[in-house]
């Protein structure tokens, strides 16, 4: 157990009185998630690599009927927990958060504007960045050029479902995109509807962790697409996913609607 591992175990088991700890560790040169019970050896804990532990938690959770689980969470993980707890996937009382502040490099990679967890247990808080260069560029160019760009990107898609599988707020067991009801019969690449439907489904719950983009084997800039839709829903309804209080799911509730007469057509 390294120093970091010891610190994580202290926070999880002594301070937060958790029964389990979900974190990352290095083993034989690979960094991967680790899940331990109180008293077990965490090994060489590591926080250098972003990974969606909330997705891992949702896989483990159904098998654990009781006990408190501590989880190392960046700000985005924390927001993912809020979105999932709000939807009843986890019991919030059984989750303890070990707040991890992201490094400057990580913040830059994620183009993240909200990197500091509510309570920082590990790491030093750093300021977020407000711009996604690609998003800015896409907003500047003409719709035709924008379509060219995305068509080129989406033609690379081989429908591996890494983006959905690793997404912390994508929790359907059978994804509608696996069927042919809404996507073209032609198969792979799946065409634009696949990506637009996913964008729509995530618009009121995406927490910008960037796991879809990191997971994509063909480097489609999915985080940028997510950020564009998040800007849309912010512009329309002044809504930003990620806290436990706001109405959810935004698009299904009647909250925030501006309808008083019937002129609201688009």
């Amino acid at each position: 157990m390294n120093e970091l591992g010891k610190k994580l175990c202290d926070i999880a088991f002594d301070k937060q009185k958790a029964d389990y700890l979900l974190a990352m560790r290095e083993e034989s040169g690979n960094v991967a998630p680790v899940f331990i019970s109180k008293g077990e050896d965490i090994g060489e804990a590591n926080i250098d690599y972003p990974y969606q532990l909330v997705t891992i938690l949702s896989r483990i959770y159904p098998w654990l009927n009781k006990g408190k689980i501590a989880i190392v969470a960046r700000r985005c993980d924390e927001k993912a927990l809020n979105e999932t707890i709000k939807r009843g996937l986890f019991d919030g009382n059984r989750i303890a958060v070990i707040g991890l502040a992201c490094s400057k490099e990580q913040i830059k990679k994620c183009r993240c504007n909200d990197p500091v967890p509510t309570k920082v247990d590990i790491g030093e808080p750093n300021n977020g960045v407000n711009t996604d260069e690609l998003m800015n560029k896409l907003q500047r160019i003409s719709p035709e050029e924008r379509m060219d760009f995305w068509v080129r990107q989406f033609k690379k898609c081989n429908k591996c479902f890494a983006c959905t599988t690793n997404c912390p707020v994508c929790f359907c067991e059978d994804c509608v995109l696996e069927e042919r009801t809404f996507v073209a019969e032609k198969g792979i690449p799946p065409g634009l509807s696949f990506h637009m439907i996913r964008t729509f489904h995530l618009a009121d719950k995406c927490i910008e962790c960037g796991e879809c983009e990191r997971s994509c084997p063909v480097d489609i800039p999915l985080l940028t697409l997510r950020k564009m839709a998040l800007k849309d829903i912010k512009d329309l309804y002044n809504f930003k996913p990620g806290d436990r209080e706001t109405a959810s799911p935004m698009l299904t509730t009647l909250e925030g609607e501006l309808l008083e007469d019937d002129t609201h057509v688009c």
Binding site: R146, T199, F200, M228, A229, D232, E257, C266
Partner: peptide, 22 residues
């Protein structure tokens, strides 16, 4: 209240179309 939800969904759908250049 059905059409209230319609009115909430489709403006977003429009913006998503615009995001991908449609």
């Amino acid at each position: 209240t059905g059409n209230h939800r319609t009115a909430k969904r489709f403006p977003l759908a429009q913006k998503i179309l615009n995001d991908v250049g449609i």
